[in-house]
Amino acid sequence: MKLILLEWKQMLRSRWMQMVGVLFTFIFTSIIVIQQMALPATDTFSRQSASFLNLLLFLLPLFILTIGSMGVASDYETKWLALLKTYPLKMRHYIVAKFTAIVCAFLLLVVLAFGVVLLLGGLLGGVVIPPSLLMITLLTILIFSAIAVLVGIIAKTRLYALALSLVVWSFLLLLISYALMAVGTVIAGHVLQKITLVVIHVNPIEWLRFGYLLFANQASVLGPSYYEFVQFYQTTTGLLVYTLVSILWVACPLLFAYIMIRKGGRSA
């Protein structure tokens, strides 16, 4: 617990984190308030909700990956981790503490951003924030905090962590989709559909996006090709599978991080 508090304080004291906090809040608020003023409120999947979602999927993973991984890598660079190892501290506690600190720091940032949105939205007559968006925000923080810890442990230096985070972010957010779209021009539709189904499960960005559409009851936006897939995930079994895969997306990176930190113990 003390370690979590210590890590959490370090995160909040980071200048980078503070700047990102201001930047995220500013951009998030601007776009939501502008969209709210320009478009009528709706509970369907509109350009407004697509903007909210894309903003979250663009910014939040980027900030979590860079700050989170650099925080971990910094512990290697400054020999803080080496020092910790001289204490009777288990490495799994270190990973859990790091993960919890990142999650809590970004939750605080999101609370601040949503607070400003609600404040300005309230002044403008009310802003609609779908509950499924809040749920996906939380899940985004959990999944990418876990990946950030893994990236930091792989990188070991801050510069490398920054570079690797950017690579992971662009790969998950853009490159996989573009590659799939390009492949789709030369393969049959049913093959593309099946590869897309695999990609949804192995790319956390697509998984979160699919989750938002599913829980907002707007999965029809995906079109007839994914009818049976959507039907499955709307059943109780489907929801259980969604929960299980989401848990795996948090647990697996942390597990890999633990294995790696133990393997590279002496180099720390």
């Binding site: 999927l57 799939l180 593309l192």
Partner: peptide
């Protein structure tokens, strides 16, 4: 693309398509 290949519709309004 979506007109030619309906399976592309999964990516509608995704960050990459935006």
């Amino acid at each position: 693309w979506m007109v030619r290949q309906p399976a592309y519709q999964f990516f509608i309004a995704s960050p990459s398509v935006t």
